[in-house]
C-alpha cells in the first residue's frame, strides 16, 4: 500500500514589471521559509503565456495565483484568470492591482477572486501578501475536513453551491419553470420546478403545491392556520395533508 501525501499548494506569480515581480517573489519566499507551510513557489514570470503553458503540461491540484492586471501582453490579468479557471477550477486567484485599475465587482462576482492587493500602497504590500497566503492555506486545508452539505444550482453555464443549512424554502414563481430559493440572507431565482427539487435532499419537503421547505429551518408550525414560520420570520402556507406529515417529521 502506498501512502498518499497531499501535494503542496503551488504558488504562481505573474507580473510584468520586473522590479515588482522581484519584490513580491521575495515576500512570498521569505514567508514560506519562516512558516514552513505546505506551499511552494513554482513559477514567477513576466509572461502570462508561461503560466498557461505550465498548466497545459502539469497537473495542478491546489494552486494560488497572484496576478497583475496590466500585463503588457496580448492578454491582461483578468483574461488570464478566465483561461486559468477553465483548467484549474479550484484555483484561488489574487489580483495585484493599482487603484485606478481596480474592478471590484469583476474580481468578486465574475472571477470569484480570493482577494486583491493594492500595489499603490507599497508599505502594506508585504503584509497583504502574507495575508492572502494564509487565507489561501486556510481555505485549502479547511475544505479537506469540510462536511458541510451543499446543494448545487445550475444557472446558465455556471454551477452555484449553496449550503443546505442556509436554504429556507423553494417557491415556484408565477412564471412556469422558474423557482425562487429563499436563503437566510436573501433570495434568487433559477430555472427548475419545485417538483424536481423535492428529492434533492432529505431535508427538503414538499409542503404545498408551490413550496418545498427545508425542514431543518422551520421555527414553528400553526396547525390550525397551516402556516409555517421559518427561522427568519418568513411565513409560508402548507397543504392539509402535508401539514400533518410535517408536524410528525419535526417532532421526531
Amino acid at each position: 500500500m502506498k501512502w498518499v501525501i497531499a501535494e503542496l499548494i503551488k504558488i504562481f506569480v505573474c507580473e510584468d514589471d520586473p522590479k515588482q515581480l522581484e519584490q513580491i517573489v521575495s515576500y512570498v519566499k521569505n514567508y514560506l521559509l519562516i512558516e514552513n507551510l505546505d506551499m511552494e513557489l513554482v513559477l514567477a514570470t513576466e509572461d502570462p503565456h508561461e503560466v498557461l503553458k505550465y498548466l497545459e503540461k502539469n497537473k495542478v491540484d491546489r494552486a494560488l495565483y497572484l496576478l497583475d492586471i496590466n500585463l503588457n501582453a496580448d492578454i491582461n490579468g483578468i483574461e488570464l484568470a478566465d483561461k486559468l479557471k477553465e483548467r484549474d477550477f479550484n484555483g484561488k486567484f489574487v489580483f495585484v492591482t493599482s487603484h485606478s485599475e481596480m474592478v471590484f465587482l469583476t474580481f468578486k462576482y465574475k472571477l470569484e477572486a480570493l482577494d486583491y492587493i493594492l500595489k499603490d500602497d507599497s508599505k502594506g504590500l508585504q503584509k497583504r501578501v502574507i495575508e492572502v497566503i494564509n487565507a489561501c492555506n486556510d481555505l485549502f486545508n479547511r475544505s479537506g475536513v469540510d462536511n458541510e452539505v451543499y446543494y448545487q444550482v445550475k444557472t446558465g453555464n455556471h454551477v452555484r453551491s449553496i449550503r443546505v443549512r442556509d436554504i429556507l424554502f423553494f417557491e415556484s414563481s408565477v412564471v412556469p419553470h422558474k423557482v425562487i430559493v429563499h436563503l437566510l440572507d436573501g433570495q434568487f431565482e433559477f430555472y427548475s420546478t419545485v417538483k424536481e427539487l423535492e428529492f434533492e435532499n432529505d431535508a427538503f419537503f414538499r409542503c404545498h403545491k408551490s413550496y418545498v421547505v427545508n425542514v431543518n429551518n422551520i421555527k414553528s408550525i400553526d396547525r390550525h392556520t397551516r402556516e409555517i414560520t421559518m427561522v427568519n420570520g418568513e411565513k409560508i402556507i402548507s397543504s392539509v395533508l402535508a401539514c400533518r406529515k410535517l408536524v410528525k417529521m419535526v417532532q421526531e
Partner: peptide
C-alpha cells in the same frame, strides 16, 4: 417586470452591510 420576462432572473442578497441586486439575462 422580472416575472413578465422569461429570460430574466433576479437575485437579492443582504450580507455584511452590503445590499446586492443582480439581474441575470439568459
Amino acid at each position: 417586470i422580472i416575472d413578465r420576462n422569461h429570460a430574466l432572473t433576479l437575485e437579492t442578497m443582504k450580507k455584511n452591510r452590503i445590499f446586492l441586486q443582480k439581474i441575470t439575462i439568459e
